[in-house]
Design a protein around this nucleic acid. Structure first.
Length: 290
DNA sequence: CACTTGACCTGTCCGC
DNA sequence: TGCGGACAGGTCAAGT
C-alpha cells in the first residue's frame, strides 16, 4: 500500500486522534507482525501515553510518554485504523470506508486505550510490522541508517537530487526511484506518475538522463506527492487512513492503472509493462526509450 | 561495489 | 462453478 503520501496521511490522522491517550491493553496474534515479548509490552507499553506521531520515509513512529516508541511499517497491505469508543461495528465510518467491524480477519495487533477507544493494526499479507523500542534506538535500525533524504523537505534541493541519481548510472531510473537509499518515500504509484510527468521512460538508464530531465523529475516527484497528500493518498486496493477512509488520488492519476485509456497529454494509449520487477504504466508516445 | 531477482504472505481476478 | 497462474502499494537476502 502505502507510499510517502499515504503514510503521511495516516500520521496526520493519528496526531488528531490518539495524542494523550493512555494504553490499557495490547493484543497480538502474530509474533511475525509484532515480535516484542509480553514482558516488554507490559513494562514498556501498557500505561504509557501517546505523545507524538512522526514519519520517516514510509515508516511511522508513535512516540510514548516513557521514551519508548512503536515503530510501524505498513508495507503492502498494512492499515492503522482508530475506532473511538462510540463507534460500534464500524458505525461512524462514512460510506467511503473500506473497513467494517474491527477486529477482523486481517487484524494483527489491537491496542486498547483506557477510554475504550482502540487502534487496530491490520495487515492482510503480513509483510508489515510493529516494533516497540526505546525512542533513542529508532535511528539505529538498519532501514533508518541507510534511507535517503525526505524529498518534500524545504531544504531538499534539485542539486542533491541530481547528485544522488548521478551515482546510479547503470540502474533503470524507475529502480533508482524505488530505491529508498537514494531518496525516501517513492513507491510504485508515484514512480510511474512522476516519470510520466517528466517525459521519461521508466526503463531508461539513469546515466542517460540529462540535467534537465533529472530536475524535471525532481519537480514531478514533489508535485505529485504533495498533490496526493492533499487528496489523502491513493486507495489502489486496501489503503485507508486512520479513520478507515479511502484516499482519492487515484481519481487524479494520469497513468497508474490506466492502461488501455488515453494519455491525458497526447491521447495515445497508455500501456503497462514490467520494469524494475514491477508493473509499470506509461505513455509510449510521451515517454520514449531512447 | 552496483544491480537484479526471488522470497515473504493472502486474496483476487482472469482465462480455460 | 472450479482450478491454476499471475499479480498486488515494499523491502530484504542472495545471486550475478
Amino acid at each position: 500500500m502505502p507510499e510517502l503520501p499515504e503514510v503521511e496521511t495516516v500520521k496526520r490522522g493519528l496526531n488528531k486522534l490518539i495524542i494523550g491517550r493512555k494504553i490499557k491493553t495490547v493484543l497480538s496474534n502474530t509474533s511475525r507482525s509484532f515480535p516484542n515479548s509480553e514482558f516488554e509490552v507490559k513494562n514498556f507499553m501498557v500505561a504509557a501515553r501517546v505523545t507524538n506521531v512522526r514519519r520517516r520515509a514510509k515508516v511511522l513512529i508513535i512516540e510514548l510518554s516513557n521514551n519508548y516508541s512503536l515503530v510501524v511499517h505498513l508495507k503492502m497491505t498494512g492499515q492503522l485504523v482508530f475506532v473511538d469508543k462510540k463507534d460500534r461495528f464500524g458505525a461512524g465510518h462514512p460510506n467511503d470506508s473500506l473497513v467494517g467491524d474491527l477486529p477482523d480477519k486481517s487484524t494483527r495487533v489491537t491496542i486498547e486505550f483506557s477510554d475504550k477507544s482502540r487502534l487496530f493494526f491490520n495487515d492482510q499479507r503480513k509483510f508489515g510490522w510493529v516494533r516497540l523500542m526505546p525512542t533513542s534506538e529508532v535511528p539505529n535500525i538498519d532501514f533508518m541508517k541507510k534511507v535517503g533524504p525526505e524529498p518534500l523537505e524545504d531544504d531538499f534541493l534539485p542539486n542533491e537530487f541530481m547528485q544522488r541519481f548521478r551515482k546510479r548510472k547503470n540502474a533503470k531510473i524507475k529502480a533508482a526511484l524505488l530505491d529508498q537509499s537514494v531518496i525516501a518515500g517513492v513507491g510504485n504509484i508515484y514512480a510511474d506518475e512522476s516519470l510520466w510527468g517528466a517525459y521519461i521512460h521508466p526503463c531508461r538508464l539513469t546515466g542517460t538522463l540529462s540535467d534537465k530531465e533529472l530536475t524535471d523529475l525532481y519537480q514531478e516527484v514533489r508535485t505529485v506527492m504533495k498533490l496526493s497528500i492533499e487528496k489523502g493518498g491513493s486507495t489502489n486496493r486496501n489503503y485507508v487512513d486512520a479513520e478507515g477512509k479511502r484516499g482519492s488520488y487515484m481519481d487524479f492519476a494520469r497513468v497508474f492503472r490506466r492502461e488501455g485509456l488515453e494519455c491525458p497529454r497526447c491521447g495515445n494509449e497508455i500501456i503497462k509493462i514490467r520494469c524494475a520487477g514491477r508493473g509499470t504504466h506509461l505513455c509510449p508516445s510521451c515517454q520514449k526509450l531512447k
